[in-house]
Design a protein around this nucleic acid. Structure first.
Length: 670
RNA sequence: GCCGCCUUAGCUCAGUCGGUCAGAGCGACGCACUCGUAAUGCGUAGGUCGGGGGUUCGACUCCCCCAGGCGGCUCCA
């Protein structure tokens, strides 16, 4: 990623002068990555450089290499794409074309979907348009009627004009801001109008101000995001303030592809999705099984220390349970269809909470037992639509590290605070330590049930806990579960991508629905609050995220094979076998490679398998009672006495060191 | 679920216009080699070309259906 520009000092645009002129006079750059592409007026609204205020106005110049600047570049680039599409495919009707994170798209109604060859041709045409330096020229349309007349050939734009009053979001760039405007693309020499689009802007001064772009892919997308609407063909692209910034972005994508857990999972023999079992249903191979077991074991240990009690529940139950919980009416379409026997519908469980509530309810509870923390690695099945299943991150069978905490209303704020702390600490132990939080609340959608007062109370308790953590808190209105608000923990991985990890939810609904109670100190019966909490979310997903975070080079404590002994010649294998025995006695997963391969080949094999410690021994080592280390990064430490090597490896693993060991950080020399 | 694309050996991939094109590298196996920090050499075996139907004298190749995958859309308790 390229650097974001320093903020540029404000500039005063004299009345009747264009912003562009004022900037030029102030000596601000008009080209290059720091070129000023638009300005923000006193209200923060972005304006074209051709904007000329009625009165002297102080504006904030927006450079190309700022988030706002990039959005403008991308938005303008989307226009160029649309122009190219309509030139090459005149029958194409325009949808919308906004900038998005890291790029832009434009939707088109075309008789035939775009092919990769089409994209190439479009890119070529776009380059010509950009080179020709067409001017983006803003023009206000006097009335809705005029707009409709002008846009008569564009049915989707007409729809937007009609929707103008109630569509005014950043996603719909076409309309908004109280007036309708059209941006015309003008030929720089003749001034002739070459193309135009309904758009509220702002835009770059000319197409030539698009320094670097590329088209990425095409795909179908529903008009206005509704699956009942027709599908349009969407073309995705990206555009940046410089060729370097574009290259850096493409390199990031390439790195993400190299880290793809689906690819690494096959290469390292961790898991697979046998077609015979069905889509979205994973099997973990022995090596993946080890990683999974280590992940789970450490979590179990920490939960035990934190006062959780372990429970187990079945994978299937009668339908009544999910009616009681309220899940069935809401999520029937993502539950597997029921199996019928003995006159009953049985459903595969899609969530663990109802089972845990029954455990709570199995006998009377006293306030002295609260908070009661039930924990289970509970496997659930969800009928994800065929088009959404994706590696380990979106599956149909998954194991949640699910817990439900039953506490009094008074205990809730404190419990939420310690819960969040616990979650963040534990994630950090797995090597994810860069977080922000998201607070998902209700909006006025009818899907949210329950007393608004209770929602308010729960939301505030969550907010307080979140603020207490000191982390950034991002609001997510309307993102709550139907039964209560939640905090989700977003973790940044090694290459800066964010993943939703843990969630903590407050639930006043289930205690009512399941008639949960406890006997209070004053002898009355009261209703507990339920906190739902998953840390990994799903173990499969967490596994996938960790695989990508570490690019398959798992920390030694998680690595399926922690040490491989490599003899310099076959005669040294027995010596290494003894070293391996000593390591194994310390609980280390170790193998000796006694195959016929050459030593160099063995190093290559086990390095590509991401084994953290390669322990070599040849004549010199045997003589000295020593071994030599080679690490994943190619660094080495030679001649370490065997007992010392064994102790240091065991210690490294026991410490759960998340860094990859190398000659620098593996201090055996002392 | 919707749209587009894809599926050839365990893996990664060639395969022209429907007719000696069932092919390579890696891996596996065998033999030789015994080597000081990322690929030793030689040889052998492996495929109903995802499955099913159709068109054709003839289908890996064209058409239809299904399954699985990829990229999006929608969805994600």
């Amino acid at each position: 990623m390229s650097t974001v520009a320093q903020s540029v000092p404000p500039v005063v645009v004299p009345a009747g002068t264009t912003a562009g002129t004022a900037l030029r006079e102030a000596g601000l750059p008009g080209k290059g990555p720091e070129a000023i592409v638009v300005v923000a007026d006193g209200d923060g609204a972005l304006r074209d450089l051709s904007w000329a205020p009625m009165v002297n106005s102080e504006v904030r110049p927006v450079p190309a290499n700022s988030p706002e600047g990039r959005s403008v570049i991308r938005h303008s680039c989307a226009h160029v794409l649309a122009q190219a599409v309509q030139e090459l495919y005149p029958e194409a009707k325009l949808g919308i074309g906004p900038p998005i994170t890291d790029g832009f798209y434009y939707d088109f109604d075309v008789p035939r979907p775009f092919t990769p060859e089409d994209l190439q041709a479009l890119e070529k045409r776009m380059k010509q348009i950009i080179k020709s330096a067409q001017r983006f020229s803003r023009r206000a349309v006097d009335s809705v009627e005029d707009a409709k007349q002008e846009l008569a050939a564009e049915p989707y734009k007409l729809e937007l004009v009609d929707l103008k009053s109630d569509v005014d979001t950043s996603e719909v760039m076409e309309v908004g801001g109280g007036e309708l405007t059209i941006y015309d693309n003008l030929d720089p020499r003749s001034g002739e109008r070459v193309w135009g689009d309904l758009c509220r802007g702002p835009h770059l001064p000319t197409t030539k101000h698009i320094p670097a772009f590329t088209l990425m892919r095409s795909a179908a997308a529903y008009w206005r995001g509704n699956e009942k609407n027709p599908q349009l063909q969407r073309i995705y692209g990206t555009a940046w303030e410089s060729a370097e910034a574009l290259d850096a972005y493409l390199e990031l994508l390439a790195e993400a592809e190299r880290r793809d857990h689906r690819k690494i999972g096959a290469e390292l023999d961790l898991f697979s999705f046998p077609e015979e079992i069905g889509s979205g249903l994973a099997v973990f191979h022995p090596k993946g099984g080890i990683i999974r077991r280590e992940l789970e074991n450490y979590s179990r240990q920490r939960h035990e220390q934190a006062g959780y009690e372990f429970v187990n529940s079945p994978h299937i139950s009668k339908s009544g349970l999910f009616h009681t919980s309220g899940h069935l009416p809401y999520y029937a379409d993502t539950m597997f269809p029921p199996v019928q026997f003995e006159g009953e519908d049985y459903y595969l469980k899609a969530m663990n909470c109802p089972m845990h509530h029954l455990i709570y309810r199995s006998r009377g509870r006293s306030y002295r037992e609260l908070p009661l923390r039930l924990f289970e690695f509970g496997t659930v099945y969800r009928y994800e639509k065929s088009g959404v299943v994706h590696g380990l991150t979106r599956v149909r069978g998954l194991t949640m590290d699910d817990s439900h905490i039953y506490c009094t209303k008074e205990q809730m704020p404190g419990e939420l605070r310690s819960l969040l702390r616990f979650v963040l600490d534990l994630l950090a132990d797995y090597g994810l330590a860069d977080f922000y939080l998201e607070l998902s609340t209700r909006d006025d959608s009818p899907k949210f049930i329950g007393d608004p007062q209770q929602w308010e109370e729960a939301t505030e308790a969550l907010r307080a806990a979140a603020e207490d953590s000191g982390l950034e808190l991002v609001p997510d209105p309307g993102g709550a579960a139907y039964y209560g608000p939640k905090i989700s923990v977003q973790a940044k991985d090694a290459i800066g991508r964010t993943w939703q990890m843990s969630t903590v939810q407050v639930d006043f609904q289930h205690p009512q629905r399941f008639e949960l109670e406890y006997q209070a100190a004053d002898g009355t019966r009261k209703q507990p609050v339920v906190l739902h909490r998953a840390l990994f979310g799903s173990i499969e997903r967490f596994f996938g995220v960790l695989t990508e975070h570490y690019a398959g080079a798992f920390p030694a404590w998680l690595a399926p094979v922690q040490v491989v002994g490599i003899p310099i010649a076959a005669e040294h294998a027995a010596y290494l076998a003894d070293v391996a025995t000593a390591l194994r006695a310390k609980g280390i997963r170790v193998e000796v490679d006694a195959s016929d391969d050459r030593m160099q080949k063995k190093i290559r094999n086990h390095t590509t398998q991401k084994v953290p410690f390669l322990v070599l021994a040849g004549g010199k080592d045997v003589e000295a009672g020593a071994v030599s280390f080679r690490f994943r990064d190619g660094s080495q430490i030679n001649g370490i006495p065997v007992d010392r090597a064994v102790a240091e490896i065991a210690d490294w693993v026991a410490r759960r060191e998340n860094d990859s060991p190398n000659a620098e950080n593996f201090k055996v020399g002392g």
